[in-house]
Nucleic acid binder design. Structure first.
Length: 712
DNA sequence: GCAAGGTC
């Protein structure tokens, strides 16, 4: 008897949820789950032995081989290395172990350049040899998973190379420019890090340019002219069309008072479609603006209100990016959902109304997510809600769902225009004809502005003119939202990275405030880069990269050729930078307002207050001395007799009493903190588990809790 | 100490 050899097929996915889904579909639900470390892997037989193991996004990071922190540093792409990303070890280990005895590796990461690059990085970093295939699917429907599995493709190397080229370019340009900026400034002033990159650069430039537009803005006066008209018994107001800048025009218009003319009245019915169902992001934004809760309170992964509603089985997955209902849903499924809402008494009247007036097809939005449908209702609470906020969030989501199944609303829009000579006055009105979905979802603004009934052609008389003086306003600073939109328009960053990059600009000290005001350093960095490395502050670089990636993927362009060319360009810029390093450094560092808190005892330079993730510290601008502050201490006015600044803080004794204290930054003898045992100077220290006070002479340790030391 | 991109 011949026992047929069973092969081991290893399927590697981009994330755990996809591993689970693929295993479930291909095994018909009969897979076995094994937990390796914190990673869940799945095994099943389908003829051969199949193992599905997830990655977690990128698990290796492209980096320079260890070396000196200098520039220019241009490394051939093949000499860059893949470093394991901290925190991803469990995934790396699981994949490595499962790949060892696999006969066939199937890369089942997302079907885009980044997904293929993740596949390539796993193959190369783990040195996986042998047969490799690619599973190509763009949705996680059962049919598509099965189809892609039955039609395995060759590994899509060109697509992966396109992603690899992006990574190399971003790393080498970013690291070179960051090092160049930082090192040049450091010769003059102490700076932590001055970074830039393909996305940071143009984004910061937009912020700086906006600020300069605001600064150079000259307001202009203009006039809004309102005519009061009389038509028989009725009166209405209409605005003169056009922007009036010439005050002489006002007098001219005033002479028209008393004129008669005929009204031109146009009416138009408009239907207003319901809004689409929520995806995760729009849910957060909208629920936050209706309730005043912060997006974090709503969607925090562990304690968020919506997250809890999801875990309680009341709403569907909130992390979705889809604004579409499940593709498999038929009319009955929608009816079932509305019935669930109807079973929740505060909404049952509205839900019943929707059942009676349900539209043919639910309204859906453009955004889609292969893994999850839009946020919808899956259950009703049995015994109310734990808090009022839970109730509010649930009801808003339920109402949103109802709205998508409700009929259009209808408004009547009226425009009355009156011409007197060359001047046209216009009045606009809106009246609600039917609420439609607005009955169940009353959160979107739609104001009614009724106008008196005027017939088309009716005679009207201008009886008064009112003038309001106004000024043109400068453009507004960016808000996080408007800036993210602007980035999106230019193709800068991705939906996952835009907000992260804005945080980074803040952390670097380039911008401050809620409305992105550039700091002096931010402006100087933009100026220096515009001058020396214009490419890195130009959104065009991203456009060029996108085009190159497209061509690499199509096989029209060799990624090595592309990289050679762009790294050559970079090298040219960096050589120029190095030559001018002194002047650049002076220029940047002159913008760094190192607010001095004292003078360095070693070199006499300024002492400045900084903050790291471990807490505040004081450092000499030349880096000669550095003093840590306890997390809640601050530098206060005046100085210790030894010349160093004084700091103030408070400690809590074991009995819970708070004691305020001041001390010398250098903990010299004048420090008022005394050991409770022997009376000599005691020094607060920062340890792993918090802050404690240790006596320098008798060594006794008093555990005063100042505050918990932050973990890195 | 760096970038930008995934995922959590």
């Amino acid at each position: 008897m011949v026992i047929p050899a069973v092969k081991k097929i290893l399927i590697i996915t981009e994330k755990p949820s996809v591993a689970e889904r693929i295993a479930r579909v291909l095994s018909g639900g009969k897979m076995k789950e094994e937990v390796k470390g914190k990673v869940k892997i799945y095994r099943f037989y389908r003829g051969d032995l199949h193992t599905v193991v997830p990655a977690s996004g990128h698990i290796f990071q492209l980096d320079y081989p260890d070396g000196k922190w200098t520039y220019p540093i241009i490394v051939e792409p093949e000499n860059l290395i893949y470093k394991p990303i901290a925190g991803k070890k469990a995934y790396i280990d699981a994949i490595k172990r499962e790949a060892e005895d696999a006969d066939l590796i199937v890369i089942a990461t997302d079907l885009d350049t980044e997904g293929s690059a993740i596949g390539l990085e796993i193959l190369e970093a783990l040195n996986i040899k042998g047969e490799v295939k690619r599973m190509e699917f763009s949705s996680l429907s059962e049919a598509e998973i099965k189809k892609s599995y039955e039609n395995l493709k060759n590994m899509d190397y060109t697509r992966a190379y396109a992603g690899f080229a992006r990574r190399v370019l971003d790393l080498e340009w970013g690291a070179n420019i960051t090092r160049a900026l930082t090192l040049s400034a450091r010769n003059h002033r102490w700076v932590k890090l001055l970074s830039s990159g393909r996305v940071q650069g143009p984004t910061l430039r937009m912020i700086v340019e906006r600020e300069r537009e605001i600064r150079s803005f000259v307001p202009e006066k203009f006039y809004v002219i309102k005519g009061i008209f009389e038509a028989g018994e009725r009166k209405f107001e209409a605005f003169l069309r056009g922007k009036i800048k010439d005050p002489g025009k006002i007098e001219e218009i005033k002479t028209l008072v008393g004129s008669e003319s005929r009204a031109n009245v146009r009416e138009r019915k408009v239907s207003l479609r319901p809004p689409p169902p929520f995806d995760g992001t729009t849910m957060q934004i909208e629920v936050s603006s209706i309730t005043g809760l912060t997006p974090r309170q709503i969607a925090d992964r562990t304690r968020g209100i919506a997250q809890q509603l999801y875990e309680a089985g009341l709403i569907s997955y909130i992390g979705t990016e889809s604004q579409k209902y499940p593709k498999s849903w038929r009319k009955e499924d929608f009816l079932d959902m509305v019935k669930i809402i109807a079973s929740y008494s505060p909404l049952s009247r509205d839900a019943m109304w929707v059942l009676e007036n349900m539209r043919e097809k639910a309204v859906e939005g453009r955004k889609d997510d292969p893994a999850h449908p839009c946020i919808h209702i899956v259950g009703a609470p049995e015994k109310g809600f734990p808090t009022e906020n839970h109730r509010k969030v649930y009801e808003i989501i339920a109402r949103r769902v109802l709205a998508t199944l409700s009929p259009d609303g209808e408004d009547m829009r009226t425009i009355i225009s009156v011409r007197i000579g060359e001047n046209v006055f216009i009045a606009r009105g809106v009246v609600r004809l039917s609420d439609g979905w607005r009955r169940v979802y009353p959160f979107m603004k739609s104001e009614e502005k009724p106008l008196p009934r005027i017939e088309n052609g009716q005679e009207v008389k201008l009886i008064d003119i009112k003038v309001e003086e106004k000024e043109t306003k400068p453009p507004k600073r960016y808000t996080p939202r408007s800036l993210i939109k602007a980035m999106e328009k230019l193709g800068l960053g991705t939906k996952n990275t835009r907000a992260v990059i804005l945080d980074l600009l803040k952390e670097r000290g380039y911008v401050e405030g809620k409305t992105f005001r550039p700091t002096k350093i931010g402006e100087r960095v933009v100026d220096v880069l515009s001058d020396l490395v214009p490419e890195i502050v130009d959104p065009n670089m991203t456009a060029k990269l996108d085009e190159a990636m497209r061509r690499i993927e199509m096989g029209e362009l060799n990624h090595k050729d592309f990289l050679r060319k762009t790294l050559n360009e970079l090298s040219g810029y960096m050589i120029k930078f190095k030559e001018l390093e002194k002047a650049i450094g002076e220029s940047i560092s002159s913008a760094i307002e190192a607010k001095s808190v004292g003078t360095c005892p070693k070199c006499g330079g300024a002492l400045v207050l900084r903050r790291s993730r471990f807490g505040p510290f004081v450092i000499c601008i030349n880096g000669d001395v550095k003093y840590d502050l306890m997390p809640k201490e601050r530098v206060i006015e005046g100085s210790c007799e030894c010349g160093l600044p004084l700091v103030a803080g408070s400690i809590r004794t074991k009995s819970g009493k708070h004691i305020k204290y001041e001390r010398c930054l250098g903990n010299c003898d004048r420090s008022p903190l005394r050991c409770s045992n022997c009376g000599s100077t005691a020094i607060p220290k920062r340890g792993k588990y918090g802050v404690y006070v240790k006596c320098s002479s008798c060594g006794s340790v008093n555990f005063f809790k100042i505050s918990r030391a932050k973990r890195g």
